[in-house]
Design a protein around this nucleic acid. Structure first.
Length: 211
DNA sequence: AGGACGATTAACT
DNA sequence: GTTAATCGTCCTC
């Protein structure tokens, strides 16, 4: 049973912790992979300096400005895809980044896509790893997660917030890095281990900053 | 038209 | 602990 769209039409900060424990199912490439979400981050939209929507609509972020319940996939670092659940009201650009999960079905297919991983806990431990093991890329952008006929669907969202949720700063961002908008299931071994702080600055730039 | 950088990962020392 | 990989997007001429 897919999640009803109105249950996703909430602010990102409200929806993010409620998505923990929900199941994302992918039927891409002739195989089914199901993932129980264990780590997410809220991105509030045009009011959030860390959001892709902060500077207004563009071709890339267009789906974020539409109704809740659609998948927003984006390409980054020249090689990786990451995936969000669009939320909020139509016209708002709120979204929740899915950062990690536990593969609960289709683990063989997930392993085929994640050739560098051996341990089950690593398969979707990180946002780009998660997208890879589900086969998510640009072709999955704007897929309706609430439609039972879609190739990617969201199911089994809890009626009540999971009892064991931790939170802290979002990973890999520079702007608004102090906001504790990352949520995860405390103690779950599939939660990513990367630390906040953002990518290293290129050595060829900002040479005068240190003084 | 040019360039900086990114909601990251894997492979190094 | 550090760094290369690799290119679409967006900002600034």
């Amino acid at each position: 049973m897919t999640v009803a769209r109105e249950r996703l039409a909430l602010p990102a900060l409200t929806l993010a912790p409620r998505l923990l424990g929900a199941v994302l199912i992918s039927d891409i490439g002739g195989s089914e992979v199901a993932l129980r979400l264990t780590e997410v981050e809220a991105y509030a939209g045009t009011s959030d300096p860390a959001s892709h929507a902060y500077r207004g609509p563009t071709r890339r972020n267009a789906v974020m400005f539409g109704p809740a319940g659609y998948l927003y996939c984006y390409f980054t670092y020249g090689m990786h895809w990451c995936a969000n659940v669009v939320c909020g009201d139509d016209g708002e650009a709120a979204a929740v980044l899915m950062r990690a999960g536990e593969v609960i079905a289709g683990i063989d297919a997930a392993r085929e896509r994640r050739t560098s991983s051996r341990a089950a806990r690593d398969l979707a431990q990180g946002p780009a790893r998660l997208a890879t093991c589900l086969g998510l890329d640009g072709a999955a952008n704007a897929v309706d997660l609430c439609d039972p006929a879609s190739v990617v669907r969201l199911e089994s969202m809890r009626a009540r917030r999971h009892p064991n949720i931790a939170s802290g700063p979002r990973v890999g961002i520079v702007a608004a890095a102090d906001r504790p908008w990352r949520f995860w299931l405390a103690g779950d071994e599939t939660v990513s281990t990367f630390k906040p702080g953002g990518r290293q600055r290129r050595s060829t730039t900002r040479q005068t900053e240190s003084s």
